[in-house]
C-alpha cells in the first residue's frame, strides 16, 4: 500500500511560545485506521489541525494524496481540504439548521457560492445527502434541527457531513470524548465501517485504549510533541502504556 499521508519534521510553535510539535515524522498508509494516543497537551489536536491547515505549521513538510499541503494556497488548499473530512469532539454542526442541511454543507468545497445557495433544491445532492444519513442510521431525522438531536446522533450527522466530501482521509479529534461509553462505541463503529468498506484512511485521537484496540490498525503515541510509540494496538502492554502516559498512569477500560 502506498503512503497517503507523509509528514516530515513537522514543528508547531504557538504565538505564546509553546512548542507543541517537535519534529513529527509520520507516514500513514492508505486504508490505515491510525489512532493517536497521548496525554492532554501532548499535541494530538495540533497535529490533526496542521494536516488540513486549520492551524498553520511553523515548519516541516506535509504531503497528502501526493499533494503538498504546506505550499498550497487559496483554491488549491480548498481542493485539498475537501478530500479530507474532519470530525470534532464538539460535533461543530450548525445547531439551528436541519441534519440534511448540515450534511449538505459537506459539498460546499465542490460548488460555487451561487450553486451552493440553491443546494437544498439540487436533487442529486439531496439524494446523496440522504444516502449518507441513511448510512449512519439517521435518515428519519433528516428534517430535524441539530439542537434537538442527542450527542451521539449529532456526531453521526457530522460523519455524514464528512462523507459528503467524498473524502480520502478523515481526521477525527476525540470524536467520542463527550459521549457515554455505549454511544461512543456505536459512533466508532461507523468510523470503522467507513475505514473497512470505503477504504477511507482515518486518523483519530482517542483517550481510551480499549477503543484503540478494537478499531485501530495502528497506534501512534504522542508525548510532549514527539512520537514515543508507533506500532500495532496489540503491542501496547503495561510498559508501553506507561511510556505514553507516564509512570503514574493506570489503564481504565471501557467497552
Amino acid at each position: 500500500m502506498k503512503n497517503i499521508i507523509e509528514i516530515k519534521n513537522l514543528h508547531k510553535i504557538y504565538a505564546g511560545g509553546t512548542h507543541a510539535l517537535k519534529g513529527i515524522d509520520l507516514n500513514v498508509k492508505e486504508g490505515e485506521f491510525c489512532i493517536l494516543l497521548g496525554l492532554s497537551g501532548s499535541g494530538k489536536t495540533t497535529l490533526l489541525r496542521c494536516l488540513n491547515r486549520l492551524i498553520e505549521p511553523t515548519s516541516g513538510d506535509i504531503q497528502i494524496d501526493g499533494e503538498d499541503v504546506i505550499a498550497a494556497k487559496g483554491q488549491k488548499l480548498r481542493f485539498i481540504r475537501r478530500k479530507i473530512g474532519m470530525i470534532f469532539q464538539q460535533f461543530n454542526l450548525i445547531k439551528n439548521l436541519s441534519s440534511l442541511t448540515n450534511v449538505l454543507t459537506g459539498k460546499l468545497g465542490y460548488s460555487s457560492l451561487l450553486h451552493s445557495l440553491a443546494f437544498s433544491k439540487n436533487k442529486t445532492d439531496v439524494e446523496i445527502a440522504l444516502e449518507n444519513l441513511q448510512r449512519v442510521g439517521l435518515k428519519d431525522l433528516a428534517e430535524k434541527k441539530i439542537k434537538n438531536l442527542s450527542g451521539g446522533q449529532q456526531q453521526r450527522v457530522a460523519i455524514a457531513r464528512a462523507l459528503m466530501q467524498n473524502p480520502k482521509v478523515i481526521l477525527a479529534d476525540e470524536p467520542v470524548a463527550s459521549l457515554d461509553p455505549a454511544t461512543a462505541n456505536s459512533v466508532m463503529k461507523y468510523l470503522g465501517e467507513l475505514n473497512k468498506k470505503d477504504k477511507i484512511t482515518i486518523i483519530c485521537s482517542l483517550h481510551f485504549l480499549s477503543l484503540a484496540r478494537k478499531y485501530g490498525t495502528r497506534v501512534v503515541g504522542l508525548k510532549d510533541g514527539e512520537i514515543v510509540f508507533d506500532g500495532t494496538p496489540k503491542e501496547i502492554d503495561k510498559k508501553r502504556f506507561k511510556e505514553i502516559y507516564g509512570e503514574d498512569a493506570e489503564e481504565v477500560e471501557i467497552r
Binding site: R81, N92, L108, L113
Partner: peptide
C-alpha cells in the same frame, strides 16, 4: 460559536461560503 465555522472551512468552502453557511 467558532466550531461550526471551522468545520465548514475544513470542508474546503471559500470565505463567502463560510460566512453564508
Amino acid at each position: 460559536d467558532p466550531g461550526p465555522v471551522e468545520a465548514i472551512k475544513a470542508t474546503g468552502a471559500n470565505t463567502l461560503q463560510i460566512w453564508v453557511f
